[in-house]
Design a protein around this nucleic acid. Sequence first.
DNA 1: ATCCCGAGGG
DNA 2: CCCTCTGGAT
Length: 216
Amino acid sequence: MNANEILDVIEEIFPNAKCELHHESPFQLLVAVVLSAQTTDESVNKVTPALFKAYPTSKEMARASISNIEPYIRRIGLYRNKARSISALSKDLEAKFNGVVPSSYKDLMSLAGVGRKTANVVRSVAFDIPSFAVDTHVDRVSKRLGLAKPYDSVEKVEEKLKRKIDRDRWNQGHHDFIFFGRYLCTARHPQCQKCPFTSFCRKDKLEAYKQKAAQK
DNA sequence: ATCCCGAGGG
DNA sequence: CCCTCTGGAT
């Protein structure tokens, strides 16, 4: 089964895969994605309503002190780094881009706390530019399904997925993999009974590789 | 390679 | 108790 066929099957199981981070503007999406690092989006959605009510745009966020931002996001973890990031990011957005979220990798990744993965999500969801963000779910699922090697970096995984999947399916395919990884092919106790791909799954090989890499 | 870090699930 | 959650900067 090739990558496009795998997507066909996943879309039968999860017909409504989409971005689940609540936001009302590209700026709010950008902040929500930064907050989502190592955190479930469900947790992010619990804190963003109050945060965005207090600071709806980069203008208000840039004026807030970090110590005023922290209480809003403390519950999601990594909160000091994240408060510092969204403060600096908002100030930069005002100063360099007049508060308008840019769409190029170069401009997006020049912002505090924004790396390749966050830039890809913003490009895809806010601007509908074909992109393929590789996060923990996409990385794990791609390697279990044999679309990437266990030792591939996230950059290499992104490159391979973009090569193997039709360009007009990149944005939807990203969310398909996320839903598959979040709700079926989970990290800890995947529901292999419900999985249509067990005949070629490489979960065991991936875990063996990780074991080996963890020693030393 | 390590650190940041709280919440929720098993 | 232990693991995982749409990472990024140092």
